[in-house]
Computed example of a mutant assay.
Amino acid sequence: MSEDGPTAAVDVLLVEDNSGDVTLVERAFDERDLPGTLHTARTGSDALDWLNQRGEYADAPMPEIVLLDLNLPATSGHDVLREIKSTPELRQLPVVVLTSSQATADLEEAYEQHANACLIKPVDPEEFADRIETLTDFWISTAVLPSSSSSQ
């Protein structure tokens, strides 16, 4: 990807505590040469610190999109989503929920909290990579994202 390409500077924050799922997403980005730079937060509280640029994340790049697991220990993905969508400076940030839960209530709650999309994680690693590729193709290469430098 060229430095002057439209997606060269897109930062993606993956919020995921499952090492296997982190590896699958990293592998999809690497092996399929997906656009964007992937960053990972392993807990909901780390994600909120990252997004609010607190503590060790004071200099972290502000992502243009968040891939958020719902089933996080302590500060849940629902809590993270609720805070993102209720914080004026973060509200426009697209959040795609990644979940292994097929429970209708979980998906409905995520959409009620203004998730931009929900994706159920496939068990098959190749299908998982296909979905990550489709997701990034839309959210990074096709959709027009709000500038991370603009604030409300």
Rank of each mutant, 00 (worst) to 15 (best):
M1L: 09
G5H: 15
G5F: 13
P6Q: 14
P6L: 15
T7Y: 14
A8V: 03
A9N: 13
D11E: 13
D11G: 04
V12C: 06
L14Q: 14
V15S: 13
V15L: 12
E16I: 02
D17P: 11
D17S: 15
N18T: 15
N18K: 14
N18P: 14
N18Q: 14
D21H: 15
D21W: 07
L24F: 10
R27W: 01
R27V: 02
E31S: 07
E31V: 04
E31Y: 02
D33T: 08
D33C: 07
D33V: 08
L34D: 05
G36S: 11
T37R: 15
L38V: 05
H39M: 08
H39R: 12
T40D: 13
T40E: 14
A41L: 09
R42L: 05
G44H: 05
S45K: 00
L48D: 10
L48K: 10
L48R: 03
L48H: 11
D49I: 01
D49S: 15
D49A: 15
W50S: 02
N52R: 10
R54I: 03
R54N: 08
G55C: 04
Y57M: 11
D59K: 14
D59R: 14
A60G: 07
A60F: 01
P61S: 10
M62D: 07
E64Q: 13
E64V: 00
V66H: 13
L67W: 11
L67S: 01
D69V: 06
D69K: 06
L70N: 04
L72Y: 02
A74Q: 14
G77K: 02
H78T: 09
D79L: 05
V80P: 07
R82Y: 15
E83G: 02
E83W: 01
T87Q: 01
P88W: 10
E89L: 09
L90G: 13
R91T: 02
Q92C: 04
P94G: 10
V95Q: 05
V97R: 00
V97S: 00
S100Q: 12
Q102D: 02
Q102R: 04
A103C: 07
T104N: 11
A105L: 11
D106G: 12
E108W: 03
Y111A: 01
A115L: 09
N116F: 00
N116C: 00
A117L: 10
C118I: 10
L119D: 06
V123H: 06
D124G: 06
P125R: 07
F128L: 02
A129N: 09
D130P: 01
D130E: 06
T134C: 07
T136R: 05
D137V: 00
W139N: 12
W139Q: 12
W139T: 11
W139L: 08
I140K: 04
S141I: 00
S141Q: 08
T142R: 11
T142A: 06
A143S: 13
V144Y: 06
L145A: 05
P146R: 05
S148A: 08
S149Y: 13
S149C: 12
S150K: 06
S150N: 03
S151K: 12
S151V: 12
Q152N: 09
